[in-house]
Simulated assay, not measured.
Amino acid sequence: MKFVAFPRELQGTGASRRLRLSGKVPGIVYGAGQPAMIELDHNALFHALKKEAFHSSVLEMDLGGEVTKVVLRDVQKHAYKPQVLHIDFQRVDATTRIHKKVPLHFVNEAESQAVKFDKCLINHVVSELEIECLAEKLPEFLTADLGGLAKGQSLHVDDLKLDASIKVVTHGRKNPVVAVVVPIVEEEVVVAAAPAAAPAKGKGKGKK
């Protein structure tokens, strides 16, 4: 993905506030040299942040006509307004090793024996993993194939088919990524009605 940034001349709280009022977002690019202060169009950035690839891919930043490869490092958002307050990027090249959280995409869940025949549920224990790899090998997402799962089984980090250059650095390789859960069936308890009481002797008869 490619985006456009502009050099930011003024710094400080007051300057950043004025930028935001004018529809811009202050930011910084660091790594591989001196940090660069930048500004971006808020609306374009806001829509880009809705795309999964913007968070987990190597991006091309056009700054003053010069294209640099970067990865997103941090986003600060307003507590309750749909507004981006600040953004950080890191420069990368072919030799840069990075740690990055990458989303998991789950496939073939409905076709698994666990769901299709055993009528179980599959619990997604985690939705992303932090990995270490060369920037040029950074995947947009990791795929977890659930097609082989059956009742009583789990899928672990070790079961994922990853490129040899990718190392998972969080969650533990033996911990489950998904687990098959047998749904609890609630039994319906039927309460038998109490037998009607027999009428008391001598009652209900007319007087002679």
Rank of each mutant, 00 (worst) to 15 (best):
E186W: 07
M37V: 05
V189T: 01
F89T: 01
E111A: 14
Q153L: 08
T68I: 13
R8H: 02
Q113M: 12
N123A: 13
A36K: 12
V4Q: 12
K203S: 15
V58R: 01
A44W: 03
V107W: 03
L49A: 09
S56P: 01
L149K: 00
A179G: 06
T96M: 05
G202D: 06
I98W: 01
H42V: 02
G148K: 15
Q90G: 06
V84T: 04
I166D: 03
V115W: 09
V181T: 11
H105N: 12
G64L: 03
A44C: 08
A15D: 10
E111M: 10
G202V: 06
R17C: 06
A5W: 00
K51N: 15
F46L: 15
Q76W: 02
L63C: 02
H156A: 15
F54L: 11
V25M: 05
A193V: 14
G27P: 07
F46D: 14
L146S: 04
R18T: 09
L155V: 06
H78R: 03
C120Q: 02
E140S: 10
H86G: 08
D118T: 02
K205C: 07
T13W: 09
K69W: 02
A5I: 08
I38D: 11
V58A: 01
A94L: 04
R91A: 01
D163S: 15
H124M: 12
H124F: 13
T143Y: 08
D93C: 04
R97M: 11
L72R: 00
L155M: 14
V75T: 03
P183M: 02
E60F: 07
K167M: 12
T68W: 06
I184E: 14
H47V: 13
